[in-house]
């Protein structure tokens, strides 16, 4: 473990945690623009977090300690996920601890924690939301793993940093299998982050909500942590996408110039990705919940096709 590695690791972790709400704000702002609204500004998530942290927490009478603990588990696991994904540099000290498959496991851990907390109170909404979340989750996870396997087959390693290094260092080569994986990943990203074709993040309608139904009972600092964690999750997913499909510009070795370059490039990529996400959410309509298996099935199909095409074409 080098000193530089530790420095980039800590810097990336703090930066990710701090600017993750900004990405959420940017996506919401773009959505407002595309829908001919003025929007609340890209710093709205910070204002919301500040407001929530100031309030007093109200907890249901029959809540167990699990209910109190889950926001911290959620926040912690999302921070871990964000520190594994190479968004700024590949020289990360923590990256040896967990590879791409463990990353999927970390997301699963967070999902299980929030579902348990939702069922803990015993309200109808919590149970319903948890059931739906698990449905979407268990369908999305194999698709995510297929995407990661395709990238791993190309770079012969499941470590995310090695994947980024191989993909960014090679000559410009077209990988048709990565095109399939890219579509599959986009669909998984939309489903896992409760975005529009599967779940509407702005909806509080009992028939449609998934993520919101689970966190209805939370308030104040607990809610703030959960909201923050979900924005870090979105950030982590977008940076995984960048790392797999557009890895150029991520600092490769222990040099300061690369790091100085990596940040503006990352911000530029995030701006483009956030706008793209908002565009997708504006164009698409929310699907019925029973269409979600079909949506995720298609994502899985694309993931498998990516792998098959890799075996056929050798690229």
């Amino acid at each position: 473990m080098s000193a530089f590695g530790l420095f980039t690791q800590l810097m990336q972790l703090f930066l990710t945690v701090l600017i993750a709400p900004l990405l959420m704000g940017w996506v919401n702002q773009c959505r407002s623009w595309l829908q001919n609204r003025k929007g609340a500004g890209i710093d709205q998530p910070y204002r919301k977090l500040g407001k929530l942290f100031k309030k007093d927490a109200v907890i249901a009478k029959n809540a167990s300690p699990l209910f109190r603990g889950v926001p911290y588990v959620l926040f912690g696991s999302m921070c871990l996920a964000a520190s594994i994904v190479p968004s700024l540099a590949t020289d990360l000290s923590f990256s040896k601890a967990a590879d791409a498959i463990a990353l999927a496991g970390i997301f699963a851990l967070a999902r299980i924690a929030i579902s348990l907390a939702a069922m803990d109170i015993g309200t109808a909404f919590g149970g319903m939301g948890a059931r739906r979340e698990m449905l979407v989750g268990f369908l999305a996870e194999p698709a995510l793993l297929m995407v990661l396997f395709t990238a791993s087959l190309i770079s012969q390693s499941t470590s995310l940093t090695v994947i980024v290094e191989t993909l960014a260092h090679r000559h410009v080569e077209i990988y048709p299998s990565m095109a399939f994986a890219g579509i599959a990943f986009l669909m998984v990203l939309l489903a896992e982050n409760a975005r529009i074709p599967v779940d509407n993040p702005a909806s509080h309608l009992e028939l449609t909500m998934i993520h919101e139904a689970m966190i209805l009972e939370y308030s104040a600092r607990h809610l703030a942590l959960i909201e923050w964690a979900s924005s870090i999750k979105l950030f982590a997913y977008v940076t995984i996408g960048i790392a797999l499909f557009a890895p150029w510009g991520i600092a490769q070795s222990a040099d300061w110039a690369g790091m100085a370059f990596a940040l503006p490039i990352l911000i530029l990529k995030l701006l483009v990705a956030g706008f793209g996400l908002a565009l997708i959410e504006t164009v698409l309509a929310k699907q019925r919940i029973f269409r979600a298996p079909e949506f995720m099935g298609t994502a899985f199909l694309f993931g498998v096709l990516g792998m098959l095409v890799h075996f056929l074409l050798g690229a």
Binding site: E173, I174, P176, S177, A179, F180, I183, T298, L301, F302, L305, V309, L313, A315
Partner: peptide, 19 residues
């Protein structure tokens, strides 16, 4: 590589038509 990419797009389109 470009031909391979186009071939993959054809496969993708075949699935899109199917669905």
């Amino acid at each position: 590589q470009f031909i391979n990419l186009l071939a993959s797009i054809l496969l993708l389109l075949a699935f899109a038509m199917l669905s």
